[in-house]
Design a protein around this nucleic acid. Structure first.
Lengths: 184, 184
DNA sequence: TTGATCATGTAAGGGGTTACATGATTTA
DNA sequence: TAAATCATGTAACCCCTTACATGATCAA
């Protein structure tokens, strides 16, 4: 039940469904993803609940846009969510499930290859996040301790992604070292 | 699409739906959760697909049990999954969404309280995992480098949970320090 | 005798993905 | 002229959660 809240958070500034999708992909993707086929109906529902309202607006190119903006009730709804305790769901990690049963493959070779593949995945991710951090935040005025409040919180979430990916890399190394010692 | 594979992995040894639920809660919960209302129909589906078969068995207490065991096809299905690349889905973290829009609350006080609550959550989690590690693995013969292959891989997944939670704690501290410097 | 544990299920509903449908404009 | 981008949606399907239904046995 968080997508509606995230949309309300983003509707700080009026936007269309298409705009919001871009924001997900560009600036929130390290902790949330959303498809257009989910965003459009959710916006419609929020409008029925009077948490946003919309009006048609001409488009420079392509079909007419539907511009959404947050209502007062929408803002209050968002604030209520922000006052709630951290919403921590259980994170299902299928790749840990794969590793967990890797003994079925009969040795440690597949596990080692699997961990190397994982390590590569996370180093690529860290590199991507580092790049985002470099162009998005390190150039912002007042980095790091005098950013705007919005940028500060956004930067916190990016740091979380970086911290998590780096921890995963260190964990891969620990596991690979143990597999290696085991052979010797 | 991983629950069926996890069930196949656990059905190394014959078990009932109820047994499998307990295994989720006791030994896999740091990376996966499953409800009985999901496990039972999934087992039925696996049986229709001939990946497991079942027979009724009397119970020492309570109603009759349905004992499932993996078929040869089931084992091959599992092995195919283990040969696939790491299945990394996008992890949605609603609490990062909350933090991201916390500037709406108008200051840094709510963010600081929120981070302290998060930190507490993760320290509790690390303590619980450490305890599991102590009673489950450190007592096992050959710890840490001569565990059975099954235990070794299971321990890897637990270490991943510990690493992740510790990274989250360090991240909370980093954020709290920045909020603190900002006030000064 | 009340509640916990054992044991198996169904039903309703929300969240999310992939695929499909439509069509205008801009760029290569 | 073909492909990418802009723009909004619907349909089918899977995954998961919460709640409900049923009933036996055992320990306090």
């Amino acid at each position: 039940m968080s997508l509606p809240h995230l949309l309300l958070g983003m509707l700080d500034v009026p936007a269309t469904g298409y705009d919001l999708k871009r924001t997900f992909d560009r600036t929130l993707r390290h902790f949330w993803a959303a498809e257009l086929s989910q965003i459009y109906p959710t916006l419609q529902r929020l409008e029925r609940q009077k948490l946003v309202r919309s009006k048609r607006a001409p488009s420079a190119r392509g079909p007419a846009r539907r511009l959404y903006r947050r209502t007062g009730a929408g803002r209050r709804h968002l604030l209520a969510w922000l006052r709630e305790p951290p919403q921590i769901g259980d994170q299902r990690q299928a790749w840990l499930g794969q590793l967990c049963f890797m003994a079925e493959t009969g040795g440690t070779k597949r596990a080692a290859a699997f961990l190397i593949e994982l390590r590569h995945h996370f180093t690529t991710r860290v590199a991507a996040y580092d790049e985002v951090e470099r162009v998005w935040f390190r150039e912002a005025p007042g980095f790091p301790d005098d950013l705007s409040l919005d940028d500060l919180h956004a930067h916190f979430t990016l740091r979380a992604g970086i911290a998590r990916a780096n921890a995963a890399i260190a964990w891969c190394d620990e596991c690979l070292a143990r597999l290696h010692r085991r052979r010797a």
